[in-house]
Computed example of a mutant assay.
Amino acid sequence: MSLVKRVPETGHWAQLYGYSRAVAVGPLVVTSACTADLDANPDLAGDPRGQAKAAFRTALDAMVHAGAGVSDVVRSRLYVTDPSYADPVGRVHGEFFGVVKPTATVVTVSQLFHPGQLVAVELEGFRAWRDID
C-alpha cells in the first residue's frame, strides 16, 4: 500500500500543468494554493473576506479528502494582492483556526493567476499515524 494519497484537481489548469489539489505523504498533508472560483461566484469580485472564506473552504475540503481535518493544520500561507487585505483575511483565518492556531504567513503578491483573485491560501497538516489508512 502506498503512503502517498493524491486529491485530484479537476480544473483545466490542473490537467494542463499536472498538479493535485492536495497530497498526503504519510502523516504530512499539503494543499496547492486555493482561491475563490470567481467564474462560479462573481459576487466575490472585490471582496477579500469572501474570497478568503471560499479559499479556506476549498483548502480544508481538500485536506479532509486527504484524510486530515482542521485540527491537523499546522501551517498556513496567505497570499494577498494588497497589504490592506491582510486584516480581513487574517480575521477569516481566525474564524477557521482560532482554537487550532497553526503558524501563519501573509505574503503580498503583485497579482494572482486569474484576474480578480485577491487571496490564495495554502495549508499544511500533520495527521497522527493512527489516522492513516
Score class of each variant (00 low, 15 high):
H12K: 08
D43T: 13
A128D: 15
T31F: 02
V109W: 11
V109F: 05
L60C: 08
E95G: 13
R6C: 07
D43Y: 12
V29F: 03
E95Y: 08
G67H: 03
F56G: 10
T105W: 05
H114M: 11
T105I: 10
V121W: 04
Y85E: 02
S76N: 06
H93L: 12
A104M: 00
V121C: 04
Y85R: 00
L38Q: 10
W13C: 04
L123D: 02
V64C: 03
Q51I: 05
A33V: 12
V121A: 06
L60N: 04
T58M: 11
D61H: 13
A54H: 07
V107C: 12
W129H: 09
V92Y: 06
R77W: 02
V119H: 00
E124N: 05
L123S: 07
F97R: 02
V121G: 07
S20H: 15
K53D: 12
L44F: 15
P88Q: 13
T35M: 12
H114D: 11
P42E: 14
D39A: 15
I132C: 07
G98C: 10
P27K: 09
L28I: 13
V29L: 09
P88I: 15
S84R: 15
A22P: 08
W13P: 00
P102I: 08
G94M: 13
D39Y: 11
R21D: 00
S84K: 12
R77V: 09
A68S: 14
